[in-house]
Simulated assay, not measured.
Amino acid sequence: MKFEQQLAVDQLSVYISKTEEILARNSAKIAQEYLENVLENKPEASILLATGNSQLKFLDALISNSKIDWSRLKLFHLDEYLGIDPEHPASFRYYLREKVEKRVEPQVFHYLEGDTLEPLRECDRYTKLLQAQPIDLCCLGIGTNGHLAFNEPPVANFNDPYWVKIVRLEKETRQVQVEQGHFSYFDQVPQYALTVTISMILSCQKILCFASGNNKASIIQRMLKGEINSSCPASILRQHSKAILFLDWESAKLL
């Protein structure tokens, strides 16, 4: 593996690759080796997955590696729109079922049920599933406003007493979903979502975080050079000693 640059910001390791493709290959190798090590020491492992564009190449590279015994892995995901059908192309359950579950056949994939009729009960159900074992690996991206999962700046709480909660989405986040082609127009994007919290993410044994492209450069600069506070939720990763941030040259250009 070759990273063009490596640095540390507080406790966070930052690895910079020349291109998104190289970033995906190198990060997948790190994830693979870590999971192999975990499975040498216990019968199964648990992974928390995300669905952003920054995950696509990484997930493909990880899945293409036949050395991982996916039948020993329990999978979870970070968030889901409230009220969306699981067959909707923009549903994160649909995305992960098509991009991951059908390709690797894990031991189980626990999904957040966004179309539940009782959202608070769903938060409780998913919390119990997450707390039933340590989460060995969390893979996630960073939103253009610094959000992790759907923990937007106004609702991000570094000491959240909950592990799963209902949040209202910022207009900026909803607009990005339209710009990326997941929805045809703004009013189609759900206003609310179910999300794991910052507290839950920080409980994970290891965190791999991804940001690539020119549109992430500004928030990455703020995340790594600004204050650690909830106005940039991703900044809290600087306090996690087992977290790695993967960047390409475009997203790292303002550092």
Rank of each mutant, 00 (worst) to 15 (best):
T144Y: 05
L62S: 04
I198W: 09
D10S: 03
I201A: 06
L140Q: 08
T19Q: 06
Y95F: 14
K253Q: 11
E40D: 13
Q180G: 09
I219H: 03
N229I: 07
M223A: 13
E36F: 11
T127L: 09
P106V: 07
V189A: 10
A31R: 12
L194M: 12
N41F: 04
H77I: 01
Q5G: 06
E122W: 05
A61S: 15
N53A: 08
V164E: 01
V104M: 00
L129N: 03
S203V: 00
F92V: 04
I84R: 03
N159E: 12
R168S: 15
A8L: 13
Q32C: 12
Y94W: 12
L75M: 10
L208A: 06
V108D: 04
Y162A: 14
V155C: 08
P134I: 02
K128M: 12
T195Q: 04
G146V: 01
C232D: 09
A90M: 14
K57A: 07
Y94P: 05
A61Y: 04
N159L: 13
L255S: 04
F92R: 01
E227C: 14
D85P: 00
N37P: 04
E227T: 07
L39W: 10
C209P: 04
A149R: 01
V108K: 11
V167P: 00
E250P: 03
I30Y: 02
D124H: 08
L130V: 11
P153K: 03
K216L: 05
W163T: 11
V167Y: 03
I198N: 09
Q5K: 15
I30K: 14
R222V: 06
A243N: 07
A28M: 06
A61L: 05
Q6K: 07
K99A: 09
L137P: 01
F210N: 00
Q239A: 08
E152F: 10
S212C: 06
K165N: 06
N41T: 10
S235D: 01
P161K: 13
L247P: 01
Q191G: 10
K18H: 13
E250Q: 08
S13I: 08
